[in-house]
Design a protein around this nucleic acid. Structure first.
Lengths: 120, 120
DNA sequence: CAAACTGTTCGCGACTCATCGAACAGCCTA
DNA sequence: TAGGCTGTTCGATGAGTCGCGAACAGTTTG
């Protein structure tokens, strides 16, 4: 039985893990996009500055537990990158990296979504 | 209580119902594509002549009941059109119509899938 | 007519997914 | 240090999906 070293420095929050895009399958990418909440998140983060939006700043009809889950899915699909700043977690779209892995896919989805919203 | 008219002419199989692409949502389209079996079907029907492939001619690891279900999903998403000919049901990709509704989406998916297969 | 073939539908089980409340863990401020 | 804020994790639940075998319905051929 060993003794735990005293936490001299305060332990920081473990930073989020991000996907390696070569390991993201097409199926996983499509599944990540095939959800209305996640589609909203992607659209809003795409239309904002990088690192502008924190997780809690999105207007989606789910509580924070589900929201946290959706961000985990988007992260695993290589669609977003997250960075902690104080108590908040900020987001950016990994557009260039995702485009390199799935050329044209994100553009098509964002365009289709924009058209869908304009139709109403 | 009315009398059923005699089925003088033999009743034909009810032809498959096809989606109106304006009513297909982006989410439904992505969900239809986010499945390995359906992705295989789409790829194979895309690389064949129109009306060349019957439902049973695809090499997928599911039995015919599941296969029939997958074709129903693809039909509902506006991705394929089916036509009965004798006992078989033939397929074609609704490429132009799907492209008009979701520009670039199908191309991106087919391209990504082709690249994924070539990687091995 | 009977048998073979193709595909659909139904009922069922296994599994996944989206969601919630509750509890928890850092971070910041008073 | 106490409390509030942001976000994660856990366990439960309900909904939906995917697969199968069995039964069925047209079609074609023997």
């Amino acid at each position: 039985m060993t003794i735990d070293p005293p936490a001299a420095t305060p332990r920081h929050r473990t930073p989020p893990e991000h996907a390696v895009l070569d390991e993201v399958t097409l199926e996983a990418a499509l599944a990540a996009l095939a959800d209305p909440v996640r589609l909203t998140l992607i659209r809003e983060v795409a239309s904002a500055q990088e690192w502008e939006r924190s997780c809690g700043s999105f207007d989606v009809p789910v509580r924070k537990a589900a929201l946290s889950h959706h961000f985990a899915v988007l992260r695993a699909a290589g669609l977003i990158e997250q960075r902690d700043a104080g108590p908040r977690r900020f987001n950016r779209l990994r557009r260039a990296e995702f485009d390199a892995r799935f050329p044209g896919l994100l553009d098509a989805v964002l365009r289709a979504q924009a058209a869908e919203l304009q139709k109403v």
